[in-house]
């Protein structure tokens, strides 16, 4: 069974059909890229999958479970993590706290237990801090742990948001342009982080404009244009696809 399955998804905004009858399946452990010109509906598709937008038609299934009318926080707790195209952090929390927030809600606990701070919770918190520090090390933000996230550079915030998405060890990771608007060194860093996740067996759906990154690391590429899926296949096949070339260069 596919881990994520999108069937006949339609999303309209006042006349614009942002996502038009899209079918998409991602198998466990796959690394799939979703590409397409600006405004082709990639982010809208992410928003429909993660509960930020309600689709007009069609269904989204995660492990066979219908996500169509599930709120974002519930989708997250089911094991679907996402990043935002507009880099998004909690600016007044420290980098470390930004990561901690992303794990705590996955550890079911009563509000009263949080108020009392039960021994179990304190233990979980210590483990969470350890995990957060490991992830900060991974993305090279070790010495920024206590800095307010809002004070970090654009690239650093991007890395922080990426690390935050990894915090709960999600089963499916949706990344919206992780390599956009950062310097070449950081693009390579991102690339190797994503590849490493893939090798660990994580399932990744990647939206990215950087073709080098997409073609290098994806197993499969899905192409959207004007909200419609116009092609799907291996990176090599996509590179040679006439409709894709037309969509990107033909106007």
């Amino acid at each position: 069974m596919a881990l994520l399955e999108v069937r006949g998804l339609v999303k309209r905004f006042l006349g614009v059909t942002a996502v038009d009858q899209v079918d998409l399946a991602v198998e466990p452990g796959e690394l799939v890229s979703l590409i397409g010109p600006n405004g082709s509906g990639k982010t809208t598709l992410f928003n429909c999958v993660t509960g930020y937008l309600a689709a007009d038609h069609g269904r989204v299934l995660f492990r066979g479970r219908d996500l169509t009318h599930v709120a974002p926080h519930r989708v997250a707790r089911l094991g679907v993590a996402r990043t935002f195209q507009q880099v998004s952090v909690f600016p007044r929390l420290s980098a470390l706290e930004n990561l901690l927030v992303f794990l705590q809600q996955h550890q079911e606990e009563h509000t009263l237990a949080r108020l009392i701070r039960t021994p179990r919770l304190r233990r979980l918190e210590v483990e969470a801090v350890e995990r957060a520090r490991r992830l900060l090390d991974l993305v090279g933000l070790t010495d920024k742990a206590d800095a307010a996230a809002g004070s970090l550079s654009y690239g650093q915030r991007k890395l922080l948001a990426f690390a935050a998405a990894l915090m709960p060890d999600p089963d499916l990771l949706l990344l919206d342009e992780p390599a956009a608007a950062v310097n070449p060194t950081m693009i390579n860093q991102m690339k190797s982080h994503i590849l490493a996740l893939h090798r660990q067996g994580k399932t990744v759906l990647l939206v990215e404009h950087n073709m080098e990154v997409v073609m290098d690391i994806s197993q499969r590429v899905v192409v959207l244009d004007h909200g419609q899926k116009i092609a799907e296949g291996s990176p090599d096949a996509i590179r040679r696809d006439a409709r894709v070339i037309e969509a990107y260069f033909g106007r």
Binding site: Y52, P72, A76
Partner: peptide, 8 residues
Amino acid sequence: PLAGAAGI
């Protein structure tokens, strides 16, 4: 919105 993505 980000809080939602964090499961809150």
